[in-house]
Design a protein around this nucleic acid. Structure first.
Lengths: 335, 335
DNA sequence: TTGTACGCGTTATCAG
DNA sequence: CTGATAACGCGTACAA
């Protein structure tokens, strides 16, 4: 049951290991006969190249890393992440890259995991989904020339490989859409304040209000987790002390929570209260009332990120760019 | 920017490479002074062991593989899989194992992917989530002595490492529960017929009917994808030609589809028609009417599988076992 | 307690 | 067109 190596093939085919190696890599300077003979013995012996040994000498692992920088439970509960992973997995597959997954419990651990992946030479590059501001991890990766691509981070840092949607614009448009529908007292339920997505969406929300001459009220906004429970509690809190006619939740799961909170307090949606979300998770359309939301082509973002990373790894003189994926408002029943 | 190796450390600390190696592996026979000196220089030089090189010599990758054997879109759309992944990821992390993810588009490609992982020596073992009957992949893995653990496969093959829930029993209990509630004309919506889970749940369903003296009717069962759309269409088809008082869908997403189909045709749930699901996906509780379902501790199954696989890999004389995770009926509004 | 020499499976360089 | 030989970075008998 011993593993058959390049040497075994060489011996059997009566050539040197180098020749076998050349056959494997389709080297042009090799006679058709030997090539065939070697290929035959490879089949015969059931030979498969050892990727580890190859990695060692090539200094390339053909592996990309992905670390989820949230408590894994919240990360996986949100369909957003699984869809991103899906996009990445498919592209990796097509490009003959392996995908290494790692889950970090918090922000600090994410840093450790990412650095470890590089330090142990397990990956050729990573895709980062963490979205906090002010990340020294980024600097570190830049300093050490470690290939990486960001997903969903701010645009404020320049010249950095990133796949994003324009959160400011999207939030602006949704808010504008709500105002156009006649809503004036629009409350906002945001994700954690230190996430760039939260900040950007908040900006767009405020911009739209301002342009329509609607005063921004601090008491109409709440920050919470990107979760059903977070949205639920936040909505209850806002409804308790304020009279409003619409909710704009910066995430679909939060929007669901909002929906149920409104329902619980006896508000009819959308007649007495409108609710809008963000993401267009696949599950959204199945709920009642169906959620009006901002569609983000999440899958495409994952794919784009993977493609960019692989290109950065492969091409010496390409170091990534900024890709903005366009969003779209999906009107449904909840508004 | 060159990578610092064991040799660099050795030279700097004025010892031999083997000594450094011993320090790394905490070899007992080494003087405290040299140990300290070596450790210091490791820090000083920013040394990190190269996992690839280590893998090559140790013939261990410390990596477990996971391949999703569905069209990736359907795989990821179903929360079941993401939760399994989560459980696996957490345990892998704790055990200092890497997790390699791979997505296969179909049954045949799954086989290729799994074998490739082993042939290229990328993994020490794999976790399989494919659930079709009669799998030669399994045999192949057994023959080649490749560590693996199954999740959710049949119990019919003996002596095989597997984490499962007792689908027959669970389906029996849910059907029995429905009958106890007074329902008699219970239709079943199953996943694909060649999946073992489907078959097992169907068995339990039939057993319960039989024990209560209720005749089993072929026209009251339908097979479809594990998806919302599948359940929706199946329910419509059944309702079109039959008069029934309850649906038992063998998956929550299908149950949702069923729910909406009933709604569409004007049936009030649960007053005119009961609907029961399977899995207890986290999202279930948020729907209206909230779904009565069979709770499977999915996360625990992932964890158990990962733990078992790692133990198989590490312990020479342990080759896995059969772990049955208990299920539980969660009564909610839909029944 | 430490150092030397060899091997893990491949690729690359340099001769021939 | 092909074959030695030397790396890649590390672990480990065997010696000292």
């Amino acid at each position: 049951m011993k593993n058959v190596t390049i040497k075994d093939v060489a011996r059997q085919a009566d050539v040197s290991p180098s020749t076998v190696s050349r056959v494997i890599s389709n080297s042009p300077r090799i006679s058709p006969e030997t090539s065939k003979r070697v290929r035959d013995t490879m089949k015969e012996l059931g030979y498969h190249p050892n990727a580890i040994a190859r990695s060692l000498v090539m200094q390339k692992t053909n592996t990309i890393g992905l670390v989820l920088a949230r408590r894994t439970d919240t990360a996986f509960a949100n369909p957003f992440f699984t869809e991103i992973i899906q996009g990445i997995a498919v592209v990796a597959q097509q490009s003959h890259f392996n995908l290494m997954l790692s889950a970090a419990q918090d922000y600090h651990q994410e840093r450790e995991e990412v650095l470890k992946m590089f330090q142990n030479r397990m990956v050729d590059g990573v895709i980062l989904m963490a979205s906090r501001v002010n990340d020294e991890l980024i600097k570190k990766l830049q300093q050490t020339n470690s290939p990486f691509v960001l997903i969903g981070r701010s645009l404020e840092i320049d010249n950095i490989p990133i796949v994003n949607n324009n959160n400011i614009k999207a939030a602006y448009q949704m808010t504008d859409f709500l105002i156009g529908k006649g809503y004036r007292k629009i409350a906002a339920i945001s994700g954690p304040a230190d996430y760039v997505v939260s900040q950007d969406r908040m900006k767009g929300y405020q911009q739209a209000l301002q342009e329509h001459g609607i005063p921004f009220k601090e008491e109409l906004i709440r920050y919470c987790d990107f979760s059903y429970e977070g949205g639920y509690e936040a909505a209850l809190a806002i409804l308790k002390d304020n009279e409003i006619d619409a909710f704009f939740a910066f995430d679909d799961m939060m929007a669901f929570g909002t929906l149920r909170a409104a329902e619980k307090l006896g508000f009819a949606v959308p007649d007495q209260l409108a609710v809008a979300g963000f993401n267009d998770d696949p599950i959204v359309a199945y709920f009642r009332p169906a959620l009006t939301t901002v569609k983000i082509p999440i899958l495409k973002m994952g794919e784009a990120a993977a493609r960019m990373l692989i290109r950065i790894i492969k091409e010496e003189d390409y170091s990534g760019e900024e890709v903005i994926i366009p969003t779209e408002i999906i009107p449904r029943e909840s508004v």
